[in-house]
Amino acid sequence: MGTVCKTLYGLNRPAARAVLTGCALLGLVAAGVRAQDIPVQQANDYTSVEYFDPPNAMQISSRLSGAEARPLPGNRLVAFKGFKLETFATNGAAEYIVQAPECVYNQIDGTACSAGHLTIRQADGQVTLAGDGFLWRQDDKFLTISNQVHTTINSGPDLKVTP
């Protein structure tokens, strides 16, 4: 998938998303699913990247990955296990690492949600958030945590993380 991402490097965001999603679904179909079956099978090590709009179109804005991805009927939703989202600034610096054991990602409106646990870590190590049950909106990077929210702010030295 890393090779695919490099090949797609430079495509605009919708095109890159469409190509990656299409490849993922084609891979699922080619994995031995019978023609009459709904093409819903498991894919491992799923990765999808998004790029900034011009003039930063060469920079990755976010990288979404999952240890296991299973498109749900309608191919609009993808159920992830081992969900991980990394976001980056326009200078390439890592900003956040979002992780959830499982969630459902909506490819159309760019949202992710789950009733399960969620952790968010600022890449500089200063802040960690966690909670149970969440809705994340990709477009405005806005997250709602429904239950048992816990934030830890560390005032120690920065822990630099590179993408």
Binding site: I120, L129, G131, K141, F142, L143, T144, I145, N147, V149
Partner: peptide, 8 residues
């Protein structure tokens, strides 16, 4: 109980 996070 609840939290909202503006990541930007």
């Amino acid at each position: 109980d609840q939290g909202y996070f503006d990541m930007d």
